[in-house]
Design a binder for these strands. Structure first.
Lengths: 71, 71
DNA sequence: TTGTAATGTAAAATATTTTTCACATTTATC
DNA sequence: GATAAATGTGAAAAATATTTTACATTACAA
């Protein structure tokens, strides 16, 4: 799973730290998400989506084709 | 967070067990989601959304207004 | 070029999700 | 009403997400 968090965050002109603060998580969590290092909880994904001002979760988190077959 | 999993699953005429098998999780996980007992991973939410044939994650998982302020 | 903010990352600890097992209750069918 | 399938739920274990701490590197302003 890839994300557009970095691009969207930069459009807002905020740091990983600030986004983390807004979302209630640490900057390391944001960093790990930007670098595709793990699969967040749905609620965290939702909160980030809201903060970044996008329409839907799928605008921020991009799933690969065969990814729905993996846990 | 509430979900429409039960309704959508019944439209497909499948059991919690079958949906779990399709999503690669146990029936207890499906049951807990249907009864709003926790916040799944984003990937699981995505897989369930795909299996249920809905457009987006938000069609299946419904967030309350002030929920984005809670972790 | 020096200092400062921002980012990348690792390891250990903690929190949360998900599984497993087990049993009770409900629902449908005969 | 008996039987089987489906569902609800609890508790402990396993797996995974997230935090914390700490340090290194990069980017950028003075």
């Amino acid at each position: 799973m890839k994300t557009n968090i970095r691009e969207l965050r930069k459009k807002l002109g905020i740091s990983q730290q600030e986004l983390g603060d807004l979302a209630g998580v640490t900057r390391q969590t944001i960093n790990a998400l930007e670098n595709s290092r793990y699969n967040p909880s749905l609620l965290l994904a939702y909160k980030i989506t809201k903060i970044l001002g996008t329409e839907s979760i799928e605008d921020v988190f991009v799933f690969e084709e065969d990814e729905s077959h993996t846990v």
